[in-house]
Amino acid sequence: MMQKTWLITGVSSGFGLELTKQLLAKGDRVIGTVRNDEHVLALMQQYPETFFRYFLDMTDTAAIKALVENVFASLGTIDVVISNAGYGLFGAAEEVSDQEVIQIIETNLVGSIQLIRAVIPYFRKQKHGRFIQISSYGGQVAFPGNSMYHATKWGIEGFCESAAQELAPFNIGMTIIEPGGARTEFRYGSAKVAKLMPEYNGNPAHAFLPMLDEANGAAPGDPKKMAAQIIESAEIEPAPLRLVLGSQALESTISVLQTRIADFDKQRESAASTDFVE
Rank of each mutant, 00 (worst) to 15 (best):
L75N: 07
I104R: 05
Q165E: 15
R268L: 15
A92V: 07
Q22A: 01
I8P: 05
T5C: 08
F159R: 03
F186M: 14
G27R: 02
A194D: 08
I113M: 15
M148T: 15
R35S: 09
W6G: 00
K153D: 08
I31K: 02
F170C: 10
Q114I: 03
L209R: 12
P144I: 02
K153G: 09
S12Y: 02
E178P: 03
Q103L: 07
L250F: 14
N201L: 07
S12K: 04
P48H: 07
A25T: 07
K127H: 15
D28V: 00
A234R: 00
K224M: 08
R183S: 09
V101Q: 06
W6N: 01
T259K: 15
M226F: 14
E100V: 03
E157N: 08
V96Y: 05
V11N: 04
V11S: 01
G76Y: 09
I236S: 01
E235R: 09
A93C: 13
P204E: 10
I31Q: 04
K266P: 12
G32P: 06
A239D: 03
T59V: 06
I134H: 00
I134W: 00
E178W: 00
L241Y: 06
R260P: 07
L241W: 02
M174Y: 10
E38C: 10
I64F: 08
A271I: 12
T184P: 09
G221W: 01
T20P: 06
N70K: 12
N108A: 13
G202F: 04
L196N: 05
H128I: 03
T259I: 13
I104P: 10
P179V: 00
S273T: 12
E185V: 04
G32W: 09
Q267W: 15
Q46H: 10
A93F: 11
P238D: 04
F186K: 04
N70G: 09
Q165I: 11
A42R: 09
L19I: 02
K225P: 05
M2S: 11
T152A: 06
Y122D: 10
T61D: 14
Q45V: 02
Q3M: 14
R268Q: 15
A66R: 14
E161C: 06
R29H: 13
G10C: 05
R117Y: 10
A239W: 00
L67P: 10
S270M: 11
Y87R: 07
G14F: 00
E251A: 12
P121I: 02
L250H: 12
G91W: 03
K153R: 07
L115P: 07
K266V: 09
L41N: 15
S13K: 07
M211V: 13
G202M: 03
I120M: 06
A205G: 05
G202C: 05
G155T: 03
V256M: 13
Q3K: 14
G76T: 10
S83C: 08
H150P: 13
L23R: 00
T274D: 08
G111N: 04
Q258S: 14
G189E: 11
P210Q: 06
I120P: 06
F72W: 08
Q46D: 14
F90I: 06
R242K: 13
V30F: 08
M174H: 08
K224R: 11
L243G: 00
S273M: 14
E161W: 05
R187F: 12
G246H: 00
A85K: 03
I82D: 02
V119I: 04
D79K: 01
A272N: 15
P121M: 03
H150V: 07
P144C: 02
M197N: 14
E157C: 01
